[in-house]
Computed example of a mutant assay.
Amino acid sequence: MPKPPVTPLSVLDLSPVSAGQTAGEALRSTIELAVSAEASGYSRYWLAEHHLNTGVAGSAPHILAGLVASATKSIRVGTAATLLGNYRALQIAESIGTLAAVFPNRIDLGFGRSGPPKSPSEPAPGFIAAAGNIPEPDPAVRLVDGLLVPAPRPIFGAVLPRKFRLQGELLGRVPGDTDNFESDVQDIIGFFTGDYRTKHGEEVTATPALGQSPRFWIHGSTAGPSARLAGKLGLPFGANYHVAPANVLDSVAEYRAHFKPSASLAEPHVIVSADVLVASDERRAGQLALGYAQWVHGIRSGHGAIPYPSPEDALELHLDAEAEDLIKDRLDTRFVGDPDQVSEGLRTLQRATGAQEVLVTTIAHDPADRENSYQLLAEAWGL
């Protein structure tokens, strides 16, 4: 009998900057990793968008996607996600249209909703509010079909850290601009299909976007506007387990509840993300995993990711009880171990969410260990 098809496995890369490494070296490591991921059989290579983080160099995903596509031959390349409020719709269409014209049938465009709150007392949407501003019916950890679903963690208080306010100012964000998310998504798609019209009814030709066909995705961390819009438009949905594990099942359910078939997608289609680190054995994986707590605390606390420390240096960087509690959900839901252990964990995640694809992100101090982690996982997964 023929073997059942292997669930597609893909890469999400933030281009982490390790301690002692330059941003240029981190970005070149991303390109090298993409080449290796393609050779290992990964389906997609997606770039994240982060700003004002000393420990993350992935702040210009459209440019980096072009570099990755140029260095590879067949793997799909895209963004997860392009944060719409940071750009004008036409800019995104022209940038991604350029890539789609040069690399046909290889480009993905992921839409993300993140930005400043309408008022200082309202948590921001998207990444910032991924684990906050949602009800807590039961603070206990749950096991759902074998998957650990932690309690929601509050991220910030009523006032956003200065870094995020500064980021918003520098990117020209205004309070409440995420209310435009649906119209921005529709406008961008319209530039590609030729359906875009100005408010006065004028047709616009957005060269080179017009006629190109990147695959559009919507990514979300909660059972909120992003999940509902993905369903309404009949687009595939990226469910965020690695940043907001408490909400992943609810967000997927919300997407499926609102799904309407479209010309491009007859049934709901989900890719679910996870943080992983694989090594030859569990002990070695545990050693390489050191430093993640300090790195992710910088992101979760709002101060920004630090350059990723070495395992040796991480032993000297202690977090207090309050800091550890803030990131407990991130640590508890990271898949760390040997290839079989991590593969089993990811299959549990896929089963519990019903996802059609799995997206993995791996952070390690040494780029060689990161590349090896992806290779070991690909072999164990059966790519």
Rank of each mutant, 00 (worst) to 15 (best):
I96L: 03
R88E: 14
P120L: 10
K118N: 14
V102W: 06
F111S: 07
L90Q: 13
A80N: 10
F103V: 11
S121N: 12
I92N: 06
L83K: 00
G97Q: 08
I92Q: 09
Y87H: 15
V102K: 14
G110Q: 10
R88M: 11
G115Y: 03
S114E: 06
L99Y: 06
P116K: 13
T79K: 07
D108A: 03
I107A: 04
N86C: 13
L99V: 04
K118S: 15
P120G: 13
A89I: 09
F103S: 11
G112A: 06
L109F: 01
L83A: 01
A101L: 12
E94C: 09
R106E: 07
G112R: 05
I75F: 00
V77I: 12
T98V: 09
F103E: 11
V102R: 15
V77Q: 02
S119H: 12
I96S: 04
G85Y: 00
T98Y: 01
G115P: 08
G112Q: 04
L99G: 08
A80R: 01
I107D: 01
G85E: 03
I92C: 11
N86K: 03
A101D: 08
S95Y: 10
L99D: 05
P116I: 13
V102M: 14
E94Y: 01
T98P: 02
L109Y: 05
R88Y: 03
R106A: 02
S74L: 05
P117I: 11
T82P: 02
G85K: 00
R76E: 07
V102P: 10
R113C: 13
K118D: 13
A101K: 08
T98Q: 12
N86T: 10
N86V: 03
T79N: 06
E94I: 10
I96H: 03
N86Y: 15
V102D: 09
G112H: 06
N105W: 00
P104L: 12
L84A: 08
I75E: 00
Y87N: 15
S95C: 11
P120A: 11
L90C: 04
A80K: 03
T79E: 08
S114D: 12
